[in-house]
Structure formats: C-alpha cells, structure tokens
Design a protein around this nucleic acid. Structure first.
Lengths: 258, 258
DNA sequence: GTCATGAAAGTTGTCTGACAAATTTTTTTG
DNA sequence: CAAAAAAATTTGTCAGACAACTTTCATGAC
C-alpha cells in the first residue's frame, strides 16, 4: 500500500470540484452520503484514516476533521487502537431541519409541524396549568398588549407567551422542542413583520387570538385551547406567507363522531 | 503574551482531571460550557486556536478537533483569516433528546411528545391520505395481523404502519420527526415486549386499535383518527411502562365549548 | 492439538512544525 | 485626509512523528 508509485493515480474519487470552500466539509458530506446510502453498512468498519486520506487525496488531518463532524452527529464511532465503525443506528441522535434552501413549501411544512405540536401543547397546558404558569402567560399577554398600543410588534413577549404555554405542559421535552422550532422562525418572521411597517391590524388580530388562548387555558377548557391555538397558528402561518393547505382545521364541524 | 517565560505557569485551566478519556472531548465540553454559560457571548470572538491551545495546555490539533464538534453543533462559526465567533443563535441547529439517564419520567415525557405528534399526524393523514398511502397502511396492518396469529410481535410491520401514517400527512418534516422519535424507542420497546413472552392479549388489543385508526383514516374522519391514535398511543405508553398522567385525553367529554 | 503468553503489526489520539489562503491592521504614499 | 500597499493575524491544510490502545499472529508449555 505504501508503494505510492504515482504511476497513473486512479480517479477513485474526483478531487471534489465545485466550491472548494471547505475541504473537510466536502469529505464529511461524501462520507455521510456513503453511510446513508448504505455503502458503509451500520456496524461495519470504515476504512482507516490513512486509507481515506489517500483515497480523497487529502491529509489525515482533514479526514479527522471530517470524521469529527460525523462523530458529533452520532453517525460514526471510533475507538483508539481499533478502528472507526458506522453507528448501529445512524441519524438517530438528533433531529435537524433543512437549514438552507428554505423554500416556501418547506417553510410551510415546518410551520405545520410547529402548529401540530403547539396545538397539542395548548391542550395539555389547559389541563395542567399552574397559577405560576398562568401568571407568566398573563404578563406576556399584557406586554404584547402594550406593545400593540405603542406601535411595536412585541415579538419578545410573543415568544414569552408561547414559551409559557409550552412550560405549562409540565413536559420539558415538549417545551424544548417548541423552543427549538420557534427558534427556526426568528430570522424569517421578524423581518416580515417589520417590512409590513409598524404593528398594524394584524398585531391586534393576533392579540385577540392570544387572549382567546389564554382564556381557554385559564378556564381549563382543553378543547377550546386547542381550537384557539390552532386558529392562531394557522393565521400566523398565513401572515408569514407559509400557510399550509387547510386554513383552519375545522374542529367544530358537525362530523359524525359515530 | 508570547513572552512565555515559564516562571510559574498560571493554573488558568486545570489539566482537566478525572477520566482523561478523550482530550478533545473534554475541551469541547469546556468550551461548550463557557458558551452556554455566557462567558463567550453570542456573536463574540473566541480566543485564537493557539491561545486556546496554550490555555488548555494541548496542541492546536486538539483544539481544532474540539472546535470541529462545536461547529458541527452550530455553536461556533469560523472564517479563514478572521477568527472564530460564537454563533448568534447557539444550540438552535438540532434537537436532541436525553440519550443517557433515561428515567421512567423522562421516557414518559418523550412518549407524550410522540403521542402529541402522532395524533396530529393521524388527523392530517385522514384529511390527505392517498390510495397509495392507504395501501401501504393496509399491507402493514395485514402483516401485523399475521404476526399476531403466528405468535410474533410484528414490530417491523408496526413501525411500517406508523410510518405510513406519517407519510400520509404529505409533510416530510412531520414524517422525519416521527421517524426520529420512534427510533428513540426501538431499544426500549422490543425487550419489554419480548420479556412479556410471545404476543399475548396485548398484541391483539394493539391490533384492534390499529384497525380502528386505519378505518378512521380510510373514511377520512379526522377527529375519529385523532381519537383512535390517541387511545392507541397512550395504551402503548402504559404497555411500555411510560404512561403519562392522563390515561386517555377525553376528547369526547361534554365540556362547555362556549 | 489446545491453550496461555508475548511479540508484532495496525489504528486512533496527540504533538510539533511548517506553509497556504484569507482577513485584518498598519504603514506608506498620493 | 484618502487610497493603496505592506505587514501582521488567523484559520485551513500538509507532513512526519510518537504515544496509547487493540488486534493478530507466532511462540512455547501442557
């Protein structure tokens, strides 16, 4: 193997054309592709670092850096002395949303997932809310009301309100996931609002929806809380231009519950 | 600074006692702690790689490897020539569930999140299911029925059934998230079932619940699908010993919707 | 022939030094 | 004072080496 007689240099792996922006990133993507494609089966041994370095035509440091990302993502494990192996359950460690190429369709999908979780959270919050949670929600509600009167958007209190609902579920995983999802929108929502000028009738409408959610949770009416949250979130989606197909899921419709 | 006259070697950072298992992992954890603690504010510049290497008493390669993980996690960004900066929005890139120390309480929280998403998915699936999705669900249903008759658990078809529902939402993000969540249980659920001996009455009960979900989705009755899915998931939670507080959310209760 | 023992090879983890590429800062020049 | 050029920084990559650990294989004892 070490007989690196450069006779003809087999084009095993092209030098990765395109943007040579980040060498280790490219190689990491290539390896991830092989793993997800099944080229490297779960539990199987990967080639050695030196082997990969030779194959890709880079130094061992680059390979190590690329593999470091895969290890962080839980796709690859390594033990000193032994080798590197593909994790038994690849891509199970963390959930990621498409960071780039956020098409309007993709955005609406993410928003729908958020609506799904937050409506359920509102239902749970109505069942389990404590007085402390209610106080936090009420404070955020008043903050938003004041912001509307002063012409601001009150985005900060809006976040606080939704986070208080999430916390009122008593389920830290639900709370963390809602935090995670709402964080995905903080770049796209604010500019839209600001571009619309200062808080207009939209903000007042949103405020009315917030008050309806709060009233339902305070009253312990879980179904009303779900309905109010659903209406609010789908309207928020349309405000940001990411409305899914059904504007409002008609929870009230007179279907036969047979 | 470069006057490294080793007069007394300030104990700026202890040599990281305890398990010296993975040097880069320890340093990565230390840096992550500083970022999450606010020592390094979002948007601020980190010390240079050489500076960190000197501070921790390791080589630059180790620092680079530690930082590589932070970059993969989206906590740190770096540009060649400039420096490394703390990401504006740390810890927003991926959602993780507690991998270790899965207490029964934590497990029930995760299960509740899953129930929340899957009930919503069932509702959406009832509204949007295509004939192809229904066929996939039906095949999985029949596979599970056969498994029950043969005394197996049919866990594979069970996964397929739930994944078909997730796919029928037409929302790839919802499908991916359900896949992610169900993957978190594949280690804990199977042993429990197997430990109970071969498929017993529990399997038959689960099968009846599956059939009810399928019927509701096929009929396009979104509320019935939600209810059936909710019942199934909370029963599944109790089967695995992770039942949240309310056994079944009484969607039917005669609350005052006024 | 089988099993324990130990040497040897292979592999990841870390160190050191160096250069390339890109950015930032400083200096020079008009 | 402004613009251009040079110098200093800093990350990205390369190369070689050694340490720590694991696996494999050869050796020898029974």
């Amino acid at each position: 193997m070490t007989s690196a007689a450069p006779t003809f240099v087999p084009p095993a792996a092209a030098p990765l054309p395109g943007t040579p922006g980040r060498l280790s990133a490219d190689i990491g993507a290539a390896l991830e592709g092989r793993i997800r494609n099944g080229d490297y089966a779960p539990g199987a041994r990967l080639p050695t670092e030196m082997g990969l370095a030779e194959e890709f035509g880079v130094s061992r440091a680059v390979v190590r850096e690329a593999v470091a990302r895969l290890k962080a993502d839980g796709l690859v494990e390594s033990r000193q002395g032994s080798g590197m192996t593909v994790a038994q359950r690849p891509a199970s460690g963390s959930f990621k949303l498409p960071a780039e190429a956020r098409s309007a369709e993709s955005l609406s999908h993410i928003f729908e997932l958020r609506a799904l979780v937050e409506t359920g959270a509102a239902e749970l919050a109505a069942k389990r809310r404590s007085s402390a949670h209610l106080a936090t929600m009420y404070a955020a509600l008043q903050g938003m009301g004041e912001a509307v009167r002063m012409g601001a958007d009150g985005a900060e209190d809006d976040d606080a309100f939704h986070q208080a609902i999430a916390a009122a579920t008593g389920n830290p995983e639900i709370r963390r996931f809602i935090d995670f999802l709402s964080g995905q929108f903080s770049e796209s929502r604010r500019p839209t609002w600001d571009a619309q000028g200062h808080a207009s009738g939209r903000a007042r409408a949103a405020q009315a929806e917030h008050e309806r959610i709060y009233a339902a949770i305070a009253a312990g009416d879980s179904m009303a809380a779900r309905q109010a949250a659903s209406r609010h979130l789908y309207q928020a989606a349309s405000r940001v231009g990411a409305a899914p197909e059904p504007p409002i899921p008609d929870t009230n419709e007179e279907t036969n519950h047979g």
